[in-house]
């Protein structure tokens, strides 16, 4: 299914960030590793910045084979079990990430199975980072869950995210991401959830006054390849790609945790009040969320997944039976 010019197998790779973003630069590094490692038999041709379409479409195309690879967010429209990625406080610290968010963790094998159903092989996970909530007015009682925060917050149209922020004590308004900057500028909304420090610094620093590092979301993109295409490679070449995917995964943890610190500092330098929470507080938030919010994911497939994850992490999860 791939273009075959001057003998090399050319893999078209979809990226969703601009040229400077680590997501793209790491993909380029991987492309070099792969080309060298396969002695030029496999070349990755990268189309960053959603050039060929957004992640929903790219995911579909990787399944079909009209695109070969991608380092992209994963859509939930084909398999709603992928909504697990929005489950707040599934992870609350980078320690959790190191242990439970790897290719051979329970979540890793669950994700592999989900992608395989679409004819897609999971080669790596790219940590984009922990997000928080940025506001243009101070939140009341930021560390007390369920207590009114006196902030009108923009939420994406994702039920679990909307439900969680409401449970935290925010008033929620749904609004397209493209309208958030203007909404904050004019006061139509007073804050938004879903961004980590880098995004908040680069895109919203002029319209926010507070940033709360709630770690209420953990964003990751997946390194995916069309399975039939992958299987046409020799097992040695397959291994080169797997190794490169593993390296990309490891690098991403370092990159994203460093970026978080760096951009929190930059926000503080801009005069934005950056509020962090200690591990005990974060675990408290997590507990509150597990008890009050996780049941929003009530599809049997989703519940089964969460139970397996809870087993691995050593706690009991029993959703209120409906």
């Amino acid at each position: 299914a791939s273009n075959d010019r001057d003998g090399a197998l050319i893999l078209r790779v979809a990226g969703q960030n601009n040229d400077q973003h680590p997501n793209t630069t790491e993909l380029r590094k991987m492309a070099e590793t792969v080309e060298t490692g396969t002695s030029g038999r496999v070349r990755m041709e990268i189309y960053p910045n959603n050039q060929l379409g957004d992640y929903t479409l790219m995911y579909d195309e990787i399944g079909q084979g009209t695109m070969h690879m991608g380092l992209i967010s994963t859509p939930t429209n084909l398999d709603n079990r992928l909504e697990i990625q929005f489950l707040p406080y599934l992870f609350s610290t980078y320690d959790d990430i190191d242990r439970y968010f790897t290719l051979d963790s329970v979540l890793g094998s669950q994700l592999r199975e989900i992608h395989r159903k679409q004819d897609i092989e999971l080669l790596g996970l790219f940590a984009e980072g922990f997000g928080g909530i940025a506001t243009s007015v101070p939140a009341t009682n930021p560390a007390k869950m369920g207590v009114d925060k006196d902030v009108v917050l923009r939420v994406p149209e994702i039920p679990i995210t909307a439900g969680h922020t409401k449970a935290m004590g925010f008033s929620t308004v749904s609004m397209a991401y493209a309208d958030v900057y203007q909404g904050l500028q004019t006061g139509a909304v007073e804050g938004w959830t879903g961004g980590h420090p880098l995004v908040n610094y680069l895109q919203f620093k002029d319209v926010i006054s507070h940033y709360y590092q709630y770690n209420n979301m953990f964003e990751a993109t997946h390194l995916l390849i069309n399975r039939p295409t992958f299987q046409t490679l020799s097992s040695a070449d397959q291994q080169v790609l797997r190794d490169a995917g593993e390296t990309l995964t490891k690098n991403s943890f370092e990159i994203s945790s460093e970026a978080e610190v760096k951009y929190r500092k930059k926000m503080a330098d801009e005069g934005i009040e950056v509020v962090e929470f200690d591990e005990k507080e974060l675990k408290g938030f997590a507990k509150h969320t597990q008890q009050n919010v996780w049941s929003i994911l009530d599809d049997p497939g989703q519940v089964a997944m969460i139970k397996e994850l809870a087993d691995e992490m050593g706690f009991d999860y029993s959703p209120p039976s409906s």
């Binding site: 079909q64 429209n77 039920p159």
Partner: peptide
């Protein structure tokens, strides 16, 4: 035909695309 093979749904109401 392709869409029927891989039925997708809308994010909030789960309506068939």
């Amino acid at each position: 035909q392709h869409s029927l093979d891989r039925p997708g749904t809308t994010p909030v109401f789960g309506l068939p695309l």
